[in-house]
Write a protein that binds this DNA or RNA. Structure first.
Lengths: 135, 135
DNA sequence: GTGGTTTAGTCAGCTAGCTGATCAATACCT
DNA sequence: AGGTATTGATCAGCTAGCTGACTAAACCAC
């Protein structure tokens, strides 16, 4: 495995960590994708397109993630009165509560690393470089 | 984004890199999951369970990935005569050819990094730690 | 050798990415 | 004001992870 190319190591590591998230989150009725949305809604209501852009995801994908969150009662969609094409998405009280509970989980889920700072720097560099081509 | 937790950075980076792979691979009739299999088949025929274990994936997932590869003619399944439960998976000539073409693509797909070695070390550490809980 | 357990593989159904196509509302332009 | 273009959201259909449930073959134990 130490001879795997970078990309394969990256996606394998991501999948394994994401798996640990699943176990921790489903007691809260949340998924990883949903948690990101709750996090992004911190500052206030946002349109779906705006949420998708920030999560680096297609609007179609965001639409379905919001379906789930809405079904679970963690989020509400309200038609924007000024622009009836847009849906303003807000956290419900239950959504805020779930988010606060989830905030503390990261430490349990992510394995402790010696060089965590270098990892973060490298990942940010990858995201920046790849986002440039795509967004 | 510089305040995102480690796990979110990791999965976002993985997704963006994987997206670059898609563009590069579909001209070869391959996907990222399929490429991993072709790579693992280098040393010779393997059972599906063995392939799944090495790819860190469930056998059900491997089964469907092999469906695709078989449909594209890149891989063949042969019932093992000694143990009729097992399928021995081998690369076809077309599969070997596709794999060799794909080998050179990594450089085009993965953005160049300053501290690539630290990244690899950290990812291996994550995979090892998370695999311990799961496999 | 018959019966229970393990193993290899598959099927069904879920989330979550993606693309391409479509619809309704708004914005723009003349 | 009317026609066209753009934008926000959704629908359909694909790959690829996952879990849970199932079948068939092999193994084992008595």
């Amino acid at each position: 495995m130490s001879q795997w190319p970078n990309g394969r190591l990256l996606s394998t590591a991501a999948r394994l960590v994401e798996h640990a998230w699943v176990d921790a989150l489903d007691s809260l009725g949340l998924t990883h994708a949903g948690l990101i949305v709750l996090h992004l809604l911190g500052p206030g209501a946002q349109s779906q397109t705006e949420l998708a852009r920030q999560a680096r995801v297609q609007t179609q994908t965001m639409s379905r993630t919001l379906d789930r969150l809405e079904r679970e009662g963690l989020v509400a969609r309200i038609r924007d009165e000024r622009d009836a094409r847009r849906h303003l998405v807000t956290r419900t009280d239950a959504g805020t509560a779930a988010w606060q509970q989830a905030r503390t989980l990261e430490a349990d889920v992510f394995p402790p690393l010696e060089n965590a700072e270098e990892l973060r720097a490298a990942l940010l560099q990858i995201i920046t470089a790849s986002s440039a081509k795509r967004w």
